[in-house]
């Protein structure tokens, strides 16, 4: 990043460049209109989730919440084991998150705080691996999972990505900026092993970075579709997106139930996002901004 990013104080006090009252009203009008367009599908999803199939397919469509929510819930559970599917998603996302936090911070620590042979090349390799399209290895990925006997198990989804390159990159940047090198030497003089330094000293310092990476990993894994689609076959082992796909594929799609399910898929992430949107956004764009 450029050091000139922070302007001097007097510069920040100058009025905004887009002047004029009319211009201001037009600008805000446009921005709010776009925000409404962005939010509308979410609103629509919640509205339809509370209506019966028959109301959803009527003209004019319902624009306000109905009273069919619980019956849609029952209809959903009658078609797919959705509680089980939510649990599968939570389990896979949590396993991915915990393992990623550990391995990514450990590797990030290695790259940030040590000097060793081929460090530059090895780190360049990690970053370059981010550029490989995941689709390239998708067929052999299935075959490896099959060979390991992991088909239709959760670890087929979370295990392969638990030391992901993006997390390592993110944690390396964070640790390099947050942990002073003197601290390492001080700990060594006290007789701490290298792993102890990581566990007892570095991890507590980089908690904010871990929180960001944790949220990003959880979100990514919660939404993951193609990976689970390939390796998870039975309905009890499906994750939430797969269960939604199953509902859509049934001969008589009950859209009230489908939209109730999509709402359940979206709400947890909305809660995370409302609580920590700044961290999520900054984390996801950190690679590009610093790149």
């Amino acid at each position: 990043m450029q050091s000139t990013a922070v302007p001097p104080k007097e510069a920040r006090q100058t009025p905004a460049l887009l002047g004029g009252l009319i211009g201001k009203i037009l600008l805000y009008g446009l921005l709010f209109f776009l925000a409404l367009l962005t939010l509308f599908p979410f609103y629509w999803m919640f509205v339809l989730a509370t209506h019966a199939q028959g109301d959803i397919f009527s003209a004019p469509p319902p624009v306000w919440f109905g009273d069919y929510l619980m019956r849609n819930y029952d209809a959903l559970l009658a078609r797919v084991p959705f509680i089980r599917n939510i649990w599968n998603s939570v389990y896979i996302a949590l396993m991915a998150t915990v393992t990623t936090l550990f391995f990514a911070s450990l590797a990030g620590f290695g790259f940030a705080m040590y000097e060793f042979k081929f460090k530059k090349q090895l780190f360049a390799f990690v970053v370059a691996s981010l550029m490989i399209p995941p689709l390239l290895g998708i067929i052999p990925y299935y075959l490896i999972i099959q060979a390991l006997g992991w088909l239709d198990t959760p670890r087929a989804v979370w295990f392969p990505g638990m030391a992901g390159a993006f997390g390592i990159f993110l944690m390396r940047q964070y640790i390099a900026s947050a942990v002073p090198k003197d601290l390492m030497d001080a700990a060594r003089i006290d007789g701490a092993s290298e792993f102890r330094i990581y566990w007892n000293i570095v991890l507590p310092i980089v908690k904010p970075g871990l929180a960001t990476l944790g949220m990003l990993t959880f979100i990514g894994q919660w939404n993951n579709f193609l990976g689970p689609l390939i390796v998870l076959s039975s309905r009890e082992n499906h994750t939430v997106p797969l269960a939604l796909r199953t509902l859509q594929g049934l001969i008589q799609t009950d859209w009230g139930a489908v939209l109730f399910g999509t709402a359940l898929a979206v709400v947890p992430l909305m809660i995370i996002f409302v609580l920590a949107s700044k961290q999520v956004i900054e984390g996801l764009t950190a690679g590009a901004v610093k790149g």
Binding site: L31, L34, A35, T38, L39, P41, F42, W44, M45, L48, I56, F57, S58, A59, P61, I219, W222, N223, F225, V240, P241, L244, R245, Q248, W255, V258, L259, T262, A265, V266, L269, M270, F273, S277, K278, V280, I281, L284
Partner: peptide, 28 residues
């Protein structure tokens, strides 16, 4: 405002595609 614009990015593509398939319905 930025957070609102960003929100669709973090939601499940499957979920929002299902919502859009009702929005794109022919008759209703």
């Amino acid at each position: 405002l930025t957070a609102i614009y960003f929100m669709p990015y973090i939601t499940s593509a499957v979920a929002v595609a299902l919502v859009f398939s009702t929005i794109f319905g022919t008759q209703f």
